[in-house]
Simulated scan of single mutants.
Amino acid sequence: MYPKFLKEHASLKDKVYLYLKDEIARGNLKPGERIKEKEIAHQFDISRTPIREALLQLEAEGFVRFLPRRGIIVRELTVKEITDVWQTIGVLEGGAAALAATRMNKRDLSNLERLTQRMEKALDEDNYDEYNRLNLRFHETFLKKSGNEQLYEIIIRLKKRIYEHPVKMVTIPEWERKAFREHLELLKIFKQKDAQKAETYLREVHWNLEENLPFILKSYFQEE
């Protein structure tokens, strides 16, 4: 039997992928732990083909690693990997924001404004799960308006790597408030339709590694 959260109409590969992704995110499959294909095949009464396909997708997204003579293990998320991904997202998302800045219409801007209002409400209520969900929607909204599907997919895949992993993140209200203020400023820039300013702000302010590194270390690794 598959877990209840898996959709019935999903393919076998997708069901295995979602199951393993959930196990990794929950910490049931820990970094360095070997994934046993035979046990999964027996558990779900399926062949190893969809399991291998799911694992290949997880490898492409950076969640598992194929090692000679050791099999497939869950990858550890290191400080170096997080900072590399962080900087990469900054460059790519800055480019996407520049493309989106001149393409967003009044309806798009109103949608972003409503999202910021809901984000503020979530913060005031200490509802950080809701805030993070709205935060992602804000970014996805302007990423889609870039009109570049490849760019959108690459950025989303990178974000999954640092947001959906087995490390237990610690919520830092100060960091969330800082990010929220940056969303308000970015909205102002979008209203000005200033592509260059949008690109620079995303790269040099919102995704600035030096300013965010102390929060990253505390949130991901509980380092002061």
Score class of each variant (00 low, 15 high):
209 L>E: 14
178 K>G: 02
107 R>C: 00
13 K>T: 15
180 F>R: 04
216 I>F: 01
71 G>T: 04
71 G>E: 06
45 D>W: 11
187 L>I: 04
23 E>C: 13
182 E>R: 06
170 V>A: 14
167 V>F: 05
169 M>Y: 01
116 T>N: 09
166 P>Y: 10
82 I>P: 09
194 D>C: 03
18 L>A: 11
180 F>W: 11
175 W>D: 08
109 L>D: 07
114 R>P: 00
128 Y>N: 04
184 L>Q: 12
24 I>S: 11
20 L>T: 04
17 Y>L: 14
207 W>M: 09
3 P>Y: 10
152 Y>R: 09
215 F>P: 01
112 L>I: 01
160 K>T: 05
224 E>I: 05
47 S>M: 06
89 I>Y: 03
86 W>T: 03
30 K>L: 12
193 K>M: 12
218 K>Q: 12
199 E>S: 07
174 E>Y: 09
91 V>F: 08
157 R>V: 06
136 L>W: 00
179 A>W: 02
11 S>M: 12
184 L>W: 01
205 V>A: 02
148 N>Q: 00
128 Y>W: 14
160 K>L: 12
145 K>P: 00
100 A>H: 01
72 I>V: 15
216 I>P: 08
126 D>S: 15
35 I>E: 04
215 F>A: 14
12 L>M: 13
206 H>N: 03
124 D>C: 04
5 F>S: 14
40 I>N: 08
6 L>V: 10
114 R>E: 15
133 R>M: 12
148 N>G: 00
120 E>G: 02
215 F>R: 11
53 E>Q: 13
81 E>V: 12
61 E>T: 12
198 A>H: 09
208 N>M: 04
217 L>Y: 05
53 E>D: 15
80 K>A: 13
15 K>P: 11
174 E>D: 14
176 E>A: 05
193 K>V: 02
180 F>C: 10
14 D>W: 03
29 L>A: 07
30 K>E: 14
119 M>T: 08
70 R>H: 09
177 R>L: 10
136 L>T: 13
136 L>Y: 05
96 A>R: 07
179 A>K: 06
149 E>Q: 00
88 T>R: 10
84 D>F: 07
125 E>S: 08
134 L>Q: 10
64 V>W: 10
212 N>T: 14
45 D>R: 13
161 R>I: 07
141 T>F: 05
159 K>H: 04
95 G>T: 02
75 R>P: 02
157 R>C: 08
119 M>K: 05
121 K>V: 10
33 E>M: 15
181 R>E: 12
43 Q>Y: 06
223 E>W: 10
125 E>D: 13
102 T>Q: 07
186 L>S: 03
195 A>Q: 09
21 K>S: 14
185 E>W: 05
163 Y>A: 15
184 L>H: 02
118 R>L: 15
195 A>I: 00
99 L>D: 01
222 Q>C: 00
85 V>G: 06
118 R>K: 14
207 W>G: 05
148 N>T: 01
54 A>N: 02
199 E>Q: 12
220 Y>L: 08
210 E>G: 03
93 E>Q: 12
119 M>C: 04
192 Q>N: 05
